[in-house]
Simulated assay, not measured.
Amino acid sequence: MRILIADDHDLLRDTLIAFLSAEDSLETESAATLDEAVTRIKRDDPYNLVLLDYKMPGMAGLDSLRKVLDMEGGQRVALISGEATREIAEQALEMGAAGFIPKTLPAKSLVNAVKFMAMGEQYAPIDFMKAPDEAEVHPLAQRLTPRENDVLKALTAGKSNKEIARDLGITEPTIKLHMKTLYRKLGVNNRTQAAMVARDEGLY
Rank of each mutant, 00 (worst) to 15 (best):
A194Y: 08
A92E: 02
N189C: 05
F100K: 00
M117A: 05
I17E: 15
D150W: 14
A154P: 00
A195H: 08
T156I: 09
N189A: 03
E172M: 06
E29W: 15
D35M: 13
T28H: 12
A97G: 03
R184S: 07
L51Q: 04
L105N: 01
K42W: 15
T28G: 05
A22Y: 14
H138G: 08
R43W: 15
A89S: 13
F116T: 00
P132F: 10
P139Y: 12
G74N: 02
I175P: 08
D150I: 00
R199G: 00
K55W: 15
L168Q: 06
G187L: 08
A124G: 10
L69H: 08
A107Q: 09
L144R: 01
A118W: 07
A157L: 15
A131V: 06
H9K: 08
K162I: 05
R40K: 14
D70M: 09
K176I: 10
R166F: 15
R66H: 11
A97L: 05
A157E: 15
K55V: 11
A131R: 13
N190F: 08
I3T: 01
K176D: 12
L203T: 01
R184N: 07
T181S: 12
I3V: 11
G74P: 05
A32E: 15
N48E: 10
S160D: 07
P173S: 03
